[in-house]
Design a protein around this nucleic acid. Structure first.
Lengths: 367, 367
DNA sequence: GTGAAAGCGCTAACAA
DNA sequence: TTGTTAGCGCTTTCAC
């Protein structure tokens, strides 16, 4: 059947042979030009490019994939891109993938989705990808994935992605430790922790960092309150903490919860940071402008996405090379106005209902 | 060359014929089963499925695409997924696409990217997509795109996506009008507007809604301040507005700017809402927990993504059918504590440096 | 209901 | 430096 006839699916788009005919070369030469292979004379290249331009030629990626076995694309399994962290990570991944010459296929797995991560991976495999990024997964208790393409796990143990997976992370544990140490350094006897949902590896890492920092100083470890990342859960936790004696410092596992927490404390008549200091996690865009401006910790999403993708691309293109270890991302604590030394007089002296003092400026201080 | 030999790219994955052989049928029958075609006996279907299961067979999507001309995937051009609106929209698009049986290819175009939207579209076309979603584009002054697949434009005029494009939107103009009317209804003589960057269609729509609401009541239209969506720009605008006489109500084009704005006003000694009322836009998760809880407007991202994708899929699968018009999304104003009637005494009576009264609870009131 | 044959548009291997 | 040949694994068409 001739091209352009009624065969459904037959498109009218120009093919390599059309360009070849027009340029007076073989189809293979057109292929060479579009793959930037060597051994094509400048003159031939020019003619091919010109012919392609005139025809509006575009490589057919399905044909390419079928013939070469390579898709030149990377699949991403993302969870809850509504959250600041995962969303930021996705942006970094997209950029890094594009820079490396890979297109992106995205599957979102909302928490509680049937099939979960495994199902998402399966669907990516069906679409055809050269590698897979599992971004900030939650622990579903499933056995590790077994796939035949390289896997990069972001923000979780490499083992999560199967035996041959590589991993990269924001170093959440070190960041959490820094946040906790900042509070201890201000003189607080201990630090309470408002944790994220413990099904998330990201939440566990932060808890672990907090625990480590307290242990290093031999401090008492108060009971952990577990939130769900939302400001609403931070708010609920805040009311709970306000009713607890001896709370002078709280490390929240993300900024949203910290903001809800601050609000609840304030409503309960506690001043932040005079009575209670609060540290968040993420450095979301508004955290410098809430009242008081939030001391928080900034995650190096770009660096992590970039590093991680480098590992993944290496695993795809040079499967035998030893994977270079991911570099340790920098710890960046942003000190603003929600933290201060503990109150010198006991909690009994807390002035209920008093308004808090005008906080310091919103300009972040990096340390 | 036999399968499994050294030809690079030759994978060892089972093919349709392998399944066919095992099930004792032809390869075509395997294809029928996996495409849910009719005219396959239950017994044959069962055998095929069983054989496929045993072999771990998976359809090869590149081969499918090449043979059928259909990719079963949709490309998304997203801008600045770091922002709450675009990120939320992307989640909705992903879900709607998956429900419709399409995979997603995503290209991020950061503002100022060379090539911009046109370049992103070109790269999607190269990857192979059956349709394209342009999500919340900015006006780059480029002529409209001309592509040979259906285009859905989200949050901008359909014309932006070319002659045959369809469009859907959050109804930002109506939402902005509602926000402005809420303030006027409280008794404010006029409402100032802190606009988003006017290269964004989304920002223009909000400005237009504000303008319309003022015009409808014949009110004076104050000079517009243009921000860049960030809390920092809202903060700068806030200091500017604090120095302007007669400002009693401000409508900010998003919540981040509103939060920065509130902070600047507060620092300048103005109380929100006693001296100045502020309305945001988006209803970001923390807006209920900042001080005071922010009155804002909620965008129906899910509904829009869903509706829009329905249009796009229809354009892909039934190109000749008349596109059903997108339904008007609901207007949802969330009234919290950042808005109140204007101060009865003149601005001169504003108590500089006084702390603001404890705001009302953070529970949203929908109206 | 099922099967055989002919491509889809490209890349791999080898020849010239 | 360029061309030839043979598939990649499916879907399509048409025959049975």
């Amino acid at each position: 059947m001739a091209r352009g006839e009624a065969r459904s699916g037959a498109s009218t788009a120009p093919r390599g042979v059309d360009v070849a005919r027009r340029a007076g070369v073989s189809q293979k030469t057109v292929s060479r030009v579009f793959n930037s292979e060597q051994y094509v004379s400048a003159e031939v290249r020019r003619r091919v490019l010109e012919a392609a331009e005139e025809l509006g030629y575009r490589l057919n990626s399905a044909a390419r994939t079928l013939a070469s076995g390579r898709t030149r694309s990377i699949g991403v399994v993302a969870l809850g891109t509504a959250l600041y962290g995962p969303a930021s990570l996705l942006i970094g991944i997209e950029r890094a993938a594009r820079d490396a010459g890979y297109a992106l296929r995205v599957v979102n797995t909302l928490e509680g989705d049937p099939g979960g991560v495994a199902g998402a991976v399966e669907s990516l495999l069906e679409q055809g990808v050269d590698g897979i990024v599992v971004s900030e997964p939650i622990d579903e208790g499933s056995v590790s994935l077994s796939v035949d393409v390289p896997v990069l796990v972001l923000g979780a143990p490499a083992a999560f992605g199967g035996p041959r997976a590589v991993a990269a992370g924001v170093g959440a544990e070190a960041l959490a430790r820094a946040a906790t140490e900042h509070l201890l350094g201000l003189g607080h006897m201990t630090v309470h922790h408002l944790a994220g949902p413990q099904r998330w590896f990201a939440a566990r890492d932060r808890l672990e960092g907090w625990r480590t920092a307290l242990a290093a100083r031999g401090r008492e470890r108060p009971a952990v309150i577990e939130g769900d990342w939302s400001a609403a859960s931070g708010y609920a936790a805040g009311h709970e903490l306000a009713a607890t004696a001896g709370v002078t410092a709280v490390f929240a596992a993300n900024d949203d919860m910290a903001i809800g927490l601050v609000r609840a404390l304030t409503e309960a008549g506690l001043r932040v940071p005079d009575d209670v200091s609060v540290v968040g996690f993420d450095d979301i865009p508004v955290s410098a402008y809430v009242t008081p401006p939030l001391t928080t910790v900034r995650q190096p999403f770009d660096a992590v996405a970039h590093d991680g993708l480098r590992l993944l691309v290496q695993a795809i293109e040079k499967p035998d090379a030893e994977p270079a270890p991911a570099s340790d991302p920098p710890v960046e604590l942003v000190v603003r106005a929600s933290t201060a030394p503990p109150p010198t007089r006991g909690p009994a002296s807390r002035a209920r209902g008093s308004a808090h003092a005008p906080p310091a400026g919103a300009t972040p201080t990096t340390g």
